[in-house]
Design a protein around this nucleic acid. Structure first.
Lengths: 332, 332
DNA sequence: TAAAATGAGTTAAACGTTTAAATGAAAAGG
DNA sequence: CCTTTTCATTTAAACGTTTAACTCATTTTA
C-alpha cells in the first residue's frame, strides 16, 4: 500500500506539500499539484484512515444503534440515513441491540469511550432517560422517541405520537365505533406508552370512560398481536362495533388474522388500526388503516443533522418534530 | 480522554509496561499489574482506536455489503453475523447498495483501498464475477451466492440452490400438478438463474417439456409477484392444476394475492411455492410452502469464518455449503 | 567467585498523517 | 540597491499506541 511518503518521493516534493493537495487547505502551485496528482494516480494512493484519524481525532464513522435490524421499519430509517451519509466520507457502524436496554447501554458506552466514532445515532432506544451517560462529548441524535425531560445536550428527531394517536382515536370514534380497545407495546417503550395515552385521553374527551377501554401490553410481533386480539375477543362481549388500536403494524396484522379466525367481520364488527405503515400494510386483507411514520424524511433529517454537527462541533443540538400522516385504508 | 501516558504517570511506570498489561503479551509483576489496572480504572482509560489501528495495521472493523437492509432476509443474516462478532472486539460497518452492482463495486473498492476495515462480507452480491477486483488482500466472504468459476481467493458460504429448486420441482410434480410456471428474480441475480435452472431441469426429467414452462423474470417484491402472477393467469388457460415456483417469499405472497383476486383456489387450482422462508411466510393465508434458507446458521458460519481468518491471516479461504430445508405448509 | 543467564522494566523508534513554524527565493517598497 | 513582504515549499513535531532493543539488578552456573 502506497503511503504519502511514496507519493512525495515520486513527485519529488515534500510530504507536507502532498498533504496540502490532499486536504486542499493551502494553495499549491498548479504544476506541482498536477505532478502530485499524477503520482497519486500512478501509485493508486489512498490516505491511511487510521493515521488520519489519529492525527485529526476524527474517525469518519458514525454509530447507529437500533433495536432490531430485522424490522423493516428500522431498516428503512437506516437506509434513508445512509442515503445522505453516503455523499460525505463518513461510514456507518451498525449495532443491533436485540431490543435490550442493557445492550444499548453497553454499545453506547463503548462508542463514547473508545472514540472510534465521531457521532452516535440511536433509533428508538428503550433505555430509561436517567441511565443515559451524562458525559457524552460527541453529537448524539435520538430518533423516534420524544425529547427527554432531564437536562441533556442530545438532539431529537421524532413524530408527535401523542397527536397521532389522538387523531386515530378521533377517527375511530367518528367512524361510529362504540366500544374501544388498545393493544400497545411493552411498557419500556416510551412511544408505546404515549400512543396508549393519546388514544385513551382523546376517547375520554369523546365521552368514553377510560375504564371501559380494554388495554393489553405486549411485544410488537405478529404472534403477540394475534394472541392479544384473541384474548380480547374471548373476554369482551361485542354487542356493539369494537375499534382496536394496535400500536404497530406487524401486531395489527396478527390482530386482523385473529379476528378473521374468530369469524368476525373486519370493519363491520371489529375495526383495526395500526401504526407505522410498513411496506406490507397496504397489501393486507383488508388493507390496513394506519398512521404513517415517514421513515424516509426522518432518515434524511437525521443524516443531515449529524453531518452538520460533525462539520461544526459547536453547533447546538436540535429538536425536530416530523409530521406523519393517517393513512386511511379499509380496516376500520 | 485519558491516554496510556496518563495511566503510566499515575501508576508510576513506563508506558511500555502499561502497554504490556493491556495487550497481555508479556509477563508483568502482579503488583505492578494491579497498580496499573487500578490507574486505568481510575482514569476510565480506554485505548485509542486509531492509534492502535495505525500501529498494528488493523482496524477491528469488518465491512458488510448487502443489497437491501429493508429486506428481513438480509437483516436476519446480518443479525446472526453480529451475534458472533459481538463476542470479539470487531465492529461491523454496514453498506446498503440498493441492489445496484455499481454501488457494490464502489463500496468494495473503497474498503479495499482505504484499509479502514480488516475484512469484507458481501451478502448476495449481484456484481458479475469478472468485475471483482483481483488484488484483494484481506479476507472476503461471499454469502448466498455460489463459488465463482474464475480463479480467486474468496471464501463462500451458500446453500445449494440447484438442489433445493430441484426438490421443489419434484415436490410439485409429486403433488399431482400438471402444468408448471416459474416467476424468478432479475437476470443479474445468480441465484435467480440457478433456481430457475434447477426447477426446469428437474421437471424436464419428470417428462415436462421445457417450452411448456411459463417463465417470468422480475424483481423480488410483492407488487412484481402480484403483477407476474396476474399475467400468467390471464395468459395461460388453466385446464389442469398449475404449480408456480416464485423464487422469493415476498413475491410469492404477491402471487397468492393475485390468485385469490382472480377467484382461483390456491392449491386446488393453483399451487404456489416460495423461497427463503422469511418471518411472515407461515402467517400467510394459506401458510406458504417454501424452502428455508437458514439465515441463522449462515450468519454464525460467516461470522466464525471471518474471525478465524482475521485471527490467522494466512489461513486458507474456504467454501461452505449449508443445508436448507423444504418447509411444507399449505400453499401447494 | 567470576561469568553467564534470567527477569522485569525502560527507552526509543515506528506506524502515516497533519500542521505550525521555519526557509529561502522572488517581488515590492523606500 | 538594500530592506521588507509575499509566496510556495520544507522541516519537524505531534497524535497514542506497540514492540524491538536495551538496561540493570538478581539469580544461576561452573
Amino acid at each position: 500500500m502506497a503511503t504519502i511518503k511514496d507519493v512525495a518521493k515520486l513527485a519529488n516534493t515534500s510530504i507536507a506539500t502532498v498533504s496540502n493537495v490532499i486536504t486542499g487547505k493551502k494553495f499549491v502551485n498548479p504544476d506541482t499539484k498536477a505532478k502530485i496528482l499524477k503520482s497519486m494516480e500512478d501509485l493508486a494512493y489512498q490516505p491511511n484512515f487510521a493515521a488520519r484519524a489519529l492525527k485529526c481525532n476524527k474517525n469518519y464513522s458514525i454509530a447507529v444503534i437500533l433495536p432490531d435490524i430485522t424490522n423493516p421499519f428500522f431498516g428503512e430509517i437506516l437506509k434513508s440515513i445512509q442515503s445522505v451519509v453516503d455523499k460525505s466520507n463518513y461510514q456507518l457502524m451498525v449495532v443491533d441491540t436485540d431490543q435490550s436496554p442493557e445492550k444499548e447501554l453497553i454499545a453506547l458506552n463503548k462508542f463514547i469511550s473508545t472514540n472510534q466514532v465521531d457521532g452516535i445515532i440511536m433509533i428508538a432506544p428503550r433505555l430509561e432517560e436517567n441511565r443515559f451517560p451524562s458525559n457524552i462529548k460527541m453529537p448524539l441524535i435520538i430518533v423516534d422517541r420524544p425529547q427527554f425531560k432531564i437536562k441533556n445536550n442530545f438532539s431529537f428527531v421524532y413524530t408527535d405520537n401523542l397527536r397521532s394517536s389522538s387523531m386515530i382515536a378521533q377517527y375511530a370514534f367518528n367512524s361510529g365505533y362504540k366500544t374501544f380497545a388498545c393493544i400497545s407495546g411493552p411498557v419500556n417503550v416510551p412511544n408505546a406508552n404515549i400512543r396508549l395515552e393519546g388514544y385513551c385521553d382523546t376517547l375520554q374527551n369523546c365521552g368514553i370512560s377510560k375504564k371501559d377501554i380494554a388495554v393489553i401490553r405486549t411485544e410488537f410481533t405478529f404472534e403477540h398481536g394475534f394472541e392479544a386480539m384473541s384474548q380480547i375477543l374471548s373476554t369482551i362481549n361485542i354487542n356493539e362495533r369494537l375499534a382496536v388500536f394496535v400500536t404497530s403494524d406487524i401486531a395489527a396484522w396478527g390482530a386482523i388474522e385473529a379476528v378473521k379466525k374468530m369469524g368476525k367481520a373486519i370493519k363491520e364488527q371489529v375495526g383495526i388500526v395500526g401504526y407505522d405503515d410498513i411496506f406490507f400494510s397496504e397489501f393486507l386483507q383488508p388493507p390496513l388503516t394506519t398512521f404513517k411514520t415517514p421513515t424516509d424524511k426522518i432518515g434524511i433529517m437525521v443524516g443531515t443533522m449529524i453531518l452538520d454537527q460533525l462539520e461544526d462541533p459547536n453547533k447546538d443540538s436540535t429538536v425536530i418534530v416530523i409530521e406523519g400522516k393517517l393513512k386511511i385504508r379499509d380496516s376500520i
